[in-house]
Write a protein that binds this DNA or RNA. Structure first.
Length: 506
RNA sequence: GGAGCCAUCGCCAAGUGGUAAGGCAGUGGUCUGCAAAACCACCAUCCCCGGUUCAAAUCCGGGUGGCUCCUCCA
């Protein structure tokens, strides 16, 4: 097992990773509050932690991965009331949609997917524990965590309780019932039109943060290895989780390492509905395919803010007619390179065998080793990409020319390159498709986007084949140019002429 | 107002003390009837100023520019 170092948000530096149990990792990631279709930001977060999970497996750890669904929450209730739908049903509907969206991006289902609605008893127990030991107090059916009973409060986010108190007072959002404006709700008294459960404090429902504290204990224990989530969750969500869990079980408990992923930026700005730059998962998958987004994500380091380029497409009169995801199209082209490479290697080894067992060219040994090193250094997936490019180049080179290389060694090396590319791809969640499937889907997508007439292409290719057979290269080139004008590139191979859609780079 | 992050080639993006990964685009070449694909070669001294050090993109101080959090937000 490769020794791992990872960046801990609490200590604000890379630290050696020492799991509670050698070889095993217990990991909790904050999942969605499903009240609307998932957007690209949700996907980025899910992909980031899925990549970390896959990387841990690649490095030899056995991972228990818990990702919750917060299905009882203000936004869900509000939306459900607007639609006249049962809140839990609405949450279940969007949770299902979320999971199928994420599957498109290669996100594996979590080992455990706990929901608030099925952990009410645990939440009440935890809340009662906090009340009993003086960390929390009940007022008129609400229960609040008393922040000043927990001195380490603010350590994760770097917030000072005094500043927070001042800020909260300024905003005049102080609910009179709270002893201090920084205290936060663990349990909320029932209001009309809201789901409610019986509790020692009357009918009510959980506050926002308490569910994660209750569910981590239930599924990973009072102390566990890694807690992850989006950067935005550091305050107040994760800060409050720490206060609740350690307030209940002691300061040496809860997450041993905190990991947070960076945000996606659009032209330097964060995504927000008011800027009109929130893109749905379905829109992305439809435009470039799910794997392109996945590839785009792992090309970047999970902690860095990512620049996501979107071009507006306008009609001649200036009316916006749609968008192009420039970064994703670039990622898709990159992916195409790997799939074309795999396809060539597969065809080569299928034809004359894989060379059997034995030595390979030393360059082919590098990929897996480099991947271990890169992933063990705080999951540096961009570094892995660099190694993958080197390996693919080696593969293409060996296919293009084999002179001076032992025939069996060449075949074995090629087989090894393809195998390792796929193994490394698995660690990043890419290259799992059959090359032919990916390449066909990609071409179909581009054909659709550009409204290309495929029968016309087939006809012209047949015409050109006839012309070339008759050595009429002038006519042949005319046809090539004609197709090029509508964005089709011809690929003459020994097996005949194939074609691809020219994907204008920018 | 308080807290924090970032600034690396035309674009994207690694690198956190030892002399700038990788990709896209570009240029030249190989291959090709011509092309495409593929391969080969070329292509940056790291926002500015000062400091520490034998040595800094990397550390410290000061600027400038950008972003985030403190309120729902992946």
């Amino acid at each position: 097992m490769t020794p791992l170092r990872l960046h801990d948000s609490l200590r604000r530096q890379k630290v050696p990773f020492e799991p509670l149990e050698p070889g095993k990792v217990g990991m909790y990631v904050c999942g969605p509050t499903p009240y609307a279709p998932a957007h690209i930001g949700h996907a980025y977060s899910a992909i980031s932690f899925d990549t970390i999970r896959r990387s841990l497996r690649f490095l030899g750890y056995v991972v228990r991965y818990v990702r919750n669904i917060t299905d009882v929450e203000d936004k869900i209730i509000r939306r459900a009331n607007e639609l006249g739908e049962d809140p839990m049903a609405l949450a279940a509907r969007f949770a299902d949609a979320y999971n199928s969206d994420m599957a498109q991006f290669g996100v594996m289902p979590p080992d455990v997917e706990p929901k608030v609605s099925t952990h009410i008893a645990e939440i009440i127990d935890l809340t009662a524990k906090l009340v009993a030991n003086g960390s929390a107090y009940a007022v008129d059916g609400d229960v609040y965590f008393q922040v000043d009973t927990f001195p380490p409060y603010g350590k994760l986010s770097g917030m000072s309780v005094d500043d927070l108190r001042a800020g909260a007072s300024e905003r005049e959002l102080v609910e009179k019932a709270k002893k201090s404006p920084v205290d936060f709700a663990l349990w909320k008294a029932a209001k009309p039109g809201e789901p409610a459960w019986d509790s020692p404090w009357g009918k009510g429902r959980p506050g926002w943060h308490i569910e994660c504290s209750a569910m981590t204990v239930a599924h990973l224990g009072q102390s566990f290895d890694i807690h992850g989530g989006g950067k935005d969750l550091i305050f107040p969500h994760h800060e409050n989780e720490i206060a609740q869990s350690q307030g209940a079980y002691g300061t040496e408990t809860f997450a041993r390492y905190w990991m947070h992923n960076g945000f996606l930026n659009f032209d330097g700005e964060k995504m927000s509905k008011s800027l009109g730059n929130v893109f749905g998962c379905d829109q992305i998958a439809d435009a470039v395919g799910g794997e392109a987004l996945r590839f785009f994500c792992v090309k970047h380091h999970y902690r860095s803010p990512i620049e996501f380029e979107v071009d507006e497409i306008r009609a001649l009169d200036g009316t916006p007619t749609g968008v192009r995801f420039r970064s994703l199209e670039a990622a898709d082209r990159d992916l195409e390179y790997f799939y074309v490479t795999l396809s060539k290697i597969d065809a080569f080894t299928a034809q004359g065998g894989d060379g059997g067992d034995g030595a390979v060219l030393p360059e082919a040994e590098k990929l897996v080793r480099a991947t271990h090193e890169a992933l063990a250094d705080d999951f540096n997936s961009p570094k892995v990409m660099a190694a993958m490019h080197e390996a693919a180049q080696l593969g293409n080179k060996l296919i293009a020319e084999g002179k001076g290389i032992d025939k069996a060694v060449r075949r074995r090396t090629l087989a090894r390159v393809a195998r390792d590319l796929r193994a490394v791809g698995e660690a990043l969640g890419v290259l799992a498709n059959a090359p032919a499937t990916y390449l066909r889907d990609r071409r179909d997508r581009l054909v659709r986007r550009k409204a290309i007439d495929v029968t016309k292409i087939d006809r012209l290719i047949a015409d050109r084949a006839a012309a070339r057979a008759a050595k009429d290269f002038t006519r042949g080139d005319e046809i090539r140019n004609e197709l090029a004008a509508i964005g089709i590139e011809l690929l003459d191979t020994p097996q005949g002429t194939d074609w691809r859609v020219h994907d204008d780079a920018s």
